[in-house]
Amino acid sequence: MTTLDILLPYYGDVSLLQATVRSILAQTDPDWRLTVVDDGREPGVPEWFAELDDDRVTYLRNEVNLGITNNYRKCLGLIEHEYAVMMGPDDIMLPNYVATVRAALAAHPGATLVQPGVEVIDGSGAVVHTLADETKRRLYAPRFQGRRLMQGEELATSLLRGNWLYFPSLVWRTDLVREIGFRDDVEIIQDLALVIDLLQAGGSMVIDDTLCFQYRRHTSSASARTAASGVRFIEARQFFLSVADRLDAQGWSKAARAARWHTSTRLHAITLLPGAVKSGQRAGVKRLLKFATATAKSR
């Protein structure tokens, strides 16, 4: 396997960005290349990267703010190698991350994606076990030990029942992701949309239970803010119904049914209702109720 490209589309907390970069520099396998694309204007960031003095690290700052999806697209165009990871600017690679995913790809050459083992941390870096993440692990993620290759309708059905992936930890095969690209009609659910597109195009995923990545979950994230207001579920509903039609056309009826019911996302909406009521978000309460109780075919 060639060098792993690590893309870091950045906007946000400088100290968390620095912790992320330090975790990459600490990898036991040195065969990686990091490209940071700064979509903000935080002071001192270019100077901090200049002081790193590591020729594997490239830092770029956008002249104008591109937004999440367009910055992802810019990062995608900067990839130079066969496989890449689009990391979050507040997540942490444990020292064995690069070695783990490279070993998984060596065992399954040509795989489209790799999902390694992940644990969840909070804003301070402490390991946490949230209801959402424990539900992912216990109810929706496949049962296996070691390493497993999945693809086709089986994997699509599993993910549409409950998305157990952690987008910033995924390794992607560059040529196929570039061919399909990021969608304009989704933002928060961009990761699931891209993975389903890849599976419909014949892609496969290696899942490896080796713990090597820390995903940071905190209330200031874009997905957390839009979840509490119910806005993200408007996007989710439109995606699930449209992808169900495409899956039916492909003959993947089981996956289409899972998309139409999107049970785990409905349950997530229900768990957010008490908080929306308590904070007086009337519009949010209305959106959450509508999403949770809609019939499988209503738009």
Rank of each mutant, 00 (worst) to 15 (best):
L211I: 15
L160E: 08
D209Y: 06
L241G: 10
V186N: 04
P168Q: 02
I180Q: 06
R232E: 12
D208Y: 06
D209M: 10
R183M: 07
E187I: 10
R173T: 03
F167L: 06
R183F: 07
S220T: 10
S242M: 07
I196Q: 02
L170M: 15
N163Y: 13
A228F: 10
A244L: 02
S204H: 07
Q190S: 11
A222L: 13
I180P: 00
D208M: 07
A224N: 11
E235Y: 03
F240M: 13
V177P: 00
F182G: 03
R161T: 08
S229D: 13
D209W: 04
Q190V: 13
L176A: 13
W164G: 08
D185L: 07
D197A: 05
V186H: 05
S158V: 05
S169L: 00
L192A: 03
V195E: 01
L199T: 00
S221P: 05
T157I: 07
V195L: 01
T210Q: 15
S223A: 11
H218L: 08
F239R: 00
G203K: 01
V177W: 02
I207T: 10
W164E: 09
C212Y: 05
R225K: 15
R225I: 14
W164V: 08
D197C: 01
T219S: 12
Y166I: 09
L165I: 13
R237P: 01
D208V: 08
R216V: 09
W164Y: 13
L194M: 01
E187C: 12
V243H: 02
G203N: 02
D191M: 01
A228Q: 15
S220L: 11
I189S: 05
S223E: 10
E179K: 14
F182K: 01
A193G: 05
S169V: 01
R178P: 03
